[in-house]
Design a protein around this nucleic acid. Structure first.
Lengths: 339, 339
DNA sequence: TTGTAAGCGTTATCAT
DNA sequence: ATGATAACGCTTACAA
């Protein structure tokens, strides 16, 4: 019924369990034909090595932990896809935990990952990572922050991210280039470095163009559809209406786009809209969304590559892994261009 | 530097490690104040129990395996969200593996989950599950198929799914009710029971309405945007053009919608479109997509609930867990209704 | 109430 | 080339 162990195989073969272990690990110290025999036996008995036991003695679980805010977000999903593919290619598996942007849950998740003795942790777009970084490091394993800053001075903490400041400038600059003078911004969640950086990029672009940076033009959002919807209402309530808006992300922009359609606001004629992320759907809404593309899959891949590098060199050596900052890329579509 | 064990605590407290174990597990057999003392000590030492070691002796890992085709699919993402939430609420964690609809990878994934000694496995929308079910069961743990049929006769195999046949009928019936006589279908991936059932529902609805079931009207798809795009071309090439199309899923429908816009086909006037799933984006494309809603989160939740129930009763007793079939619900939006 | 000892399935260090 | 044996960190009889 239950699980066949290395000892069961040994008994069946009439040899010691250490020889079985060696055979199964393809040690050169074991006779070729006994090796083959044992292999065959293991196979017919349906042997499956116990990863827990192995991890216990080897000190490595070949498992990494991934903490996301929520999986039900196309950005996170693509990133996790990138992580998973790379992990799989290197024989690593993935424990996934969702924090729902809730500090308590994120801490619980990290504690759980620690118990599971993961070899590394990747945390995406966390505000908690920023607040509780010390706690994160009690795990002793390398921690990679994906799309949030690593706090300087933290040992074993690295980050992979897109240059959000630059991205914010790109988006806003694009709108300025189109002749817009009054440009709004729908912000992301409070407390995330990503939101702060995109906002800063927006402000920098406005300042550079000697445009007024009216604080009323920055309205709150939450990175979700409904945040975009609410934001549009706020924008419409403004005394002086903006002619363009740069949204924290595509979800926000898409929510805003839907609301605009219902409100009879023509995009881009009455209001030009730019998003951020380039999630697969961005090209399929109408008007198709202009956005700053993040290489989502690659972000995940890079994070995993970094994890692999860090796990390669034991101990605390920084082993010349350095933070990765990738550029975003402006994708112009119909939500800003009057074709 | 590294990990504090129960023995380290014992040494520091001058007591035996078993007492520490008991204290940490809140055994009533241990003196209240030593318990408190040990707890405090564990805390300051930064103790984290080794889940692998515990699983080794307890025979349960409090971990479940989830196999998806790809995480970068809104349907799967929502389902996994439902699984994760429920799992978290019950102290379970999740190992995630992607199969990419590749039998080899799915088998590797299951083998890996087996090694990790997961207490149960949830496989979503697998065609491999159907083909290699015996192999799946060599794990000895309960296997839950989400959105694919469980093969009868398989012990310990259960399923949670939406009634795809009924859903196909709903979608097609809706189009028939609108007066359409020539209705096409864009199929899903070959070999998946989900695709087959939706197609069968479509055919059944046509037959019931005494409508011709022209095989040319069923064109292949792949559940992705590009499948919808290609499918539209195929439909336009038909001698007698359909006036409506029921798509395997929302992704397909959205890809088709985009292609239609580019081709100058007005939806729903020239072509009415129905999808399946009701992914969050369905309401945000234009025209907003009429679709058959699946309770995605709930599907995940139910699957996890079922897993919990099955893990509750050890052994092989069917423990009166029975397959769950939920109804889909037609959501009428603008892609079929000329408002 | 606490300690001792065995055992879970591995790998690794000795011998042989 | 192979076999004992210890060790990893934990739970759990069984003793005291």
């Amino acid at each position: 019924m239950s699980n066949v162990s290395i000892k069961d195989i040994a008994r069946a073969a009439g040899i010691s369990h250490s020889t079985v272990s060696r055979a199964l690990n393809d040690s050169p110290l074991v006779n070729a034909e006994t090796k083959a025999r044992i292999r065959r036996l293991a196979d017919t008995l349906g042997y499956s090595p116990d990863a827990g036991a192995r991890s216990l003695v080897m000190g490595r679980s070949h498992t990494i932990g991934v903490v996301v805010t929520t999986i039900a977000d196309p950005f996170a999903a693509e990133v996790v896809e990138g992580i998973e593919c790379t992990a799989y290619a290197h024989g690593y598996s993935l424990i996934l935990a969702a924090s729902n942007d809730n500090p308590e849950r994120e801490i619980a998740a990290v504690e759980m990952l620690r118990s599971k003795r993961v070899d590394s942790i990747i945390v995406t777009s966390s505000r908690v990572g920023a607040l509780h970084q010390e706690r994160l490091h009690t795990t002793g394993v390398p921690v990679i922050l994906l799309n949030s800053h690593s706090q300087r001075g933290m040992p074993n903490a690295y980050s992979v991210r897109v240059d959000d400041f630059h991205g914010g400038r790109l988006a806003t600059g694009h709108l300025i280039g189109l002749g817009h003078r009054r440009i709004a911004h729908v912000a992301g969640l409070e407390g995330h470095s990503v939101s702060a950086d995109r906002l800063a990029g927006y402000q920098h672009a406005l300042a550079t163009a000697c445009l007024d940076c009216d604080p009323a033009c920055v309205v709150p959002g939450n990175g979700q559809f409904d945040g975009g919807r609410t934001a549009l209402e706020a924008l419409l309530a403004l005394r002086e209406r903006p002619t363009a808006v740069f949204c924290y992300n595509d979800m926000t922009a898409i929510g805003l786009l839907s609301a605009a359609r219902q409100a009879g606001i023509a995009v881009p004629r009455d209001l030009a809209v730019v998003g951020f992320d380039n999630i697969p759907f961005a090209a399929h809404v109408c008007p198709a969304l202009t956005t700053v593309a993040q290489p989502m899959f690659d972000l995940g891949k890079r994070a995993m590559d970094m994890a692999l590098a860090l796990m390669g060199c034991q101990g605390n050596t920084p082993c010349d892994v350095t933070d990765v900052v990738l550029p975003g890329q402006l994708i112009v579509r119909d939500s800003t261009r009057t074709s």
